[in-house]
Design a protein around this nucleic acid. Sequence first.
DNA 1: GCAAGGTC
Length: 878
Amino acid sequence: MSRGPELIITEKDNAARRIADILSGESATAERQNDVNVYKWGGKRCIGLSGHVVGVDFPAEYNDWRDVEPVELIDAPVTKEPTQEGIVAALRKLARNASRVVIATDYDREGELIGKEAYELVREVNEDAPIDRVRFSSITDNEVQEAFANPDELDFDLAAAGEARQVIDLTWGAALTRFLSLSARQLGDDFISVGRVQGPTLKLIVDREREIKAFDPEAYWELYGNLTKSGGDPFEARYFYLNDEGNEAERVWDGDVAEILTEALNAAEEAVVDDVRRRTRTDEPPTPFNTTAFIRAAGSLGYSAQRAMSLAEDLYTAGYVTYPRTDNTVYPEDLDPRELIEELSAASTFGSDAKGLLDADREIEPTEGDKETTDHPPIHPTGELPSASDLSEDEWEVYELIVRRFLATCAEPATWERLRVVALANGEASAIAERADGLAALRDPDEAAGPGDLAADGGLRLKANGKRLLEAGYHDVYPYRSSDERIVPDVEVGETLALDDRRTEAKETQPPRRYGQSRLIEEMEKRGVGTKATRHRTLEKLYDRNYIESDPPRPTRLAEAVVEAAEEFADHVVSEEMTAQLERDMQAIAAGEKDYDEVTAASRELLDRVFEDLTESREAVGDHLQKSLKADKTLGPCPECGADLLVRKSRQGSYFVGCDGYPDCEYTLPLPSTGKPLLLDETCEDHDLRHVKMLAGRKTFVHGCPQCKADAADEQEDEVIGVCPECGEGAASPRDGGGETADAGGELAIKRLRSGSRLVGCTRYPDCDYSLPLPRRGELEITDETCEEHDLPHLRVHSGDEPWELGCPICNYREFTARQEGSELQSVDGIGEKTAEKLQDAGVDGVTDLKDADPDELAADVDGVGPDTVRDWQANAD
DNA sequence: GCAAGGTC
């Protein structure tokens, strides 16, 4: 029996460190082994994995897509190989002489599987050491001590449930993905994928798009007026009637009726209050953040799901917030909210709001959501306070959101007072309404829900709903939810109010809206599709695969074709039922009612049947996919040969427009060099080509019709504004290594390129490629002012409301690069805006310069910075 | 190169 150390294995480094701290009383020390932290104290070692360190795949002989029929993958063997070599090697080394092993991975199904993977790796090198499993629902002193005092065994059934999922996902995903890709001859980077999670997610988006396309708008009218109590402010009131079912309705569906009602409303100058109703409503504080709720809240601050998660992960790694991937919406018992609020109250920004919660003399009882899980707590601040300069602007905004959400969950409800006033306008209206009533009945005798009761005896009904915040409650600490009031004054029944600003608005019913990213993630969660850690990544994947574009995402033709093909032949893979079925099977395996073999065999049989139909229709499916792929790239007719103009990618990776008739027709048009082209539905009237938008993150812009852009550039003469500093008269030196000499007579001119971009460049291009960038938009004015240093005119740009001064194009470019270098420096941990400026003053232009600098020399040049700080930056810059 | 699930 080996007397070596005891080995504890966790799911991630962070958990390893905290568990080591707890069990060692903070005496553990960290050591690096194969780039992995190993925590060490007494006779113990603790190592953190990185989730799964082995992955399932097919044996190498199945790798060639062309050689292997996709159908063969269904019954192909599935192997498990290390994917994280360094961690696996470190684990083996530690396990070899361990006297005992404790698996302390997350307390959920995937954690059990990761634990089993570790178990198998340990057993490969150590057959004897006992292997225990500990489970705890949060990493705190009590829970961890308790769990380690009462070790359990690994649950192999639960792990087998996870393995069944892995194999089913792999066989369905790989076989169908290869089939679709091969049938459409898409074998490069642009293969056509499907899977258990991306399938139903894509169908959700495509189905909504179908609803939108099928939508038939209907016209209706709404009537409004402003009411005023004498001496008060006007408030808006809206006309309503009672429909056939006796319910209040605001939309008038008949134009003639709307006209008669408008006439009646316009004839009225006052309205008499008929009814006043007042009630108070409590507005409960929000529940704790799980991943989905967090993504949604960050979404309303303008962050994409992917960006929000990436920021939260940074904050987690830095120790400021808890683990961001969680389904849990109930704080664990060991969280003492009062203590955490006290810690937060030391912060400058939200500290006083936190204090406010403590001052109120009451028990603090945080809200609870519906879901309670055992792996991680809801996302909340740790109490470790960053200073604003430790974080980027975005990180800070997200951090503050998480802090304020926590504070809000500990705050009191808000109370609102609702006031509803109904007033009657134009006592004559009932007679008029009778006319309208008859008219509507005449027009639409079959309509089940007719116009009903258009006016009361006293006149047309107008209603106003006011709300006033009586107790702000949680709104004081959580400004992300609207606490706007709508003021309706106190009025009494019988009181006469002035009526003016009467108006009738013609409207149309709107198609359902596209799902936004956070809404999609909510829908996925609701349907049980994907997990807290993968839902946002699935959306990212759909973008990558050219299935969706823009935000809110809309499906491409390819996506529609993939969903159509799947619906016809493999409905299971685009239906949420596949996940539901799998979930039931996994539960049965975990409960010992079914086994792994039984479940995976049944799934393979189902996939076999799918392939029977699919193989017969291979050509038709491929054809349809190819047509859709082409439609996504088609702009319109080629002006030279009439074939389709398509977006193409050059060998260098840049996009351009080329003719489908190539090589017979060589017609091309350039596209801007920044971003990825997106074809809009809007077409150019002159050239019948779809407009192009260039997607480039924040720099996204609409390029428009590429033919128009090219024509405009051809028509525009270059405008000379000075002498080329590189090859013009009096230029200082020959060009570097070019062999050409200066003073070749080059001049600088404002040019417009066929790709739509604008620049100041040398007239000797391409012999001299000196150039300076100019903004894409706005009219350029050449002013009388001259730059003394460069002898060039100052430029002014007219775009938007206010013209702005670009100044000398050389000076402008110099400032621009300085800013770029500054922001590059700021990307290094520990360097803020001010420090970046100081470094630039000391001649450090960007991160490369910083890394090359001698720490002592640089420290001497920069105030208040020592050589060690410089070394820290250099380390951080790697 | 395929999936989905961990983690960074």
